[in-house]
Design a protein around this nucleic acid. Sequence first.
DNA 1: AAGCACTTGCAATATTATGGCATTTACTAT
DNA 2: ATAGTAAATGCCATAATATTGCAAGTGCTT
Lengths: 144, 144
Amino acid sequence: MKLDPVNILKEHDLKHTKQRVRVLEEIALDTVAISQPELEKKLGKEIDRVTLYRILNTYEEKGIVHRIMDLNGTANYALCSSACSEDHHHDEHVHFNCTTCGKIYCLEVIVPKIKMPNGFTAKTVNTTAYGTCEKCNALLPVSA
Amino acid sequence: MKLDPVNILKEHDLKHTKQRVRVLEEIALDTVAISQPELEKKLGKEIDRVTLYRILNTYEEKGIVHRIMDLNGTANYALCSSACSEDHHHDEHVHFNCTTCGKIYCLEVIVPKIKMPNGFTAKTVNTTAYGTCEKCNALLPVSA
DNA sequence: AAGCACTTGCAATATTATGGCATTTACTAT
DNA sequence: ATAGTAAATGCCATAATATTGCAAGTGCTT
């Protein structure tokens, strides 16, 4: 029992609107991140394009969702762990971007600590692996 | 003595044109990656916008440059190490994206190996640290 | 020097993102 | 419950970014 959109909104001082609830529901459907174009396709009939942009921006700023960029520069969204806040995203897990189906997974693997060169201070570290996901591997079992 | 644009083009079976040479020169000016908009601003007078897109795509496909996406989904370009080829990018160093000035550095730090979950096969792994770079840290020495 | 294939520049179009403003909606205090 | 207020939404226009088709130009080979 994770998702309670109404409560999430309240906790972040956001007004409870049906558009915001719908966006949260849609993102929460899958642990796999969903892309902006997909969201738009799914919600375009109910929610205005511009409103969707604004809701997603708000969610990201408030630490409700993560935005993960894929190789094409397309934004993908996934629910944050509860530890995230406005000040700091704890997005310290590895992402996996399947180059066949395009899906972005949030893996349970923690991003390893990186030693920074002198003068550089890292606030967050993002690691994304590119390759073939389990589903796509199952479809092409032996490398052709 | 790293950069010889003419030779790089020849090695990759690309015709030697002044536009391609200019783009390579511009990217090679700095170890810091340069963004598509910056390139466009610098070269817009000499090179058509569309041509720039095509040259950058060609370079990326041929393994001559890396494309690194920043948080805004903007493409940034840096020269590849000589080990890169059309088949495989050896871009296994850590990137540092300064959230103050926006610059993307290629660090000398190697991306740590990540253990993938069953069924997932990673071809490349990309690690980007976000924070403040040495120059920007020097300008704000003590945290305000 | 001529022919061929590739590259470039331009125009048109598509896609993606942002800003302004009137209307509607959620929340607050009565 | 109701009215008032601030915020969110939808629609419009516009900006910024990316792609396609094609004619003209250029590099390379013979």
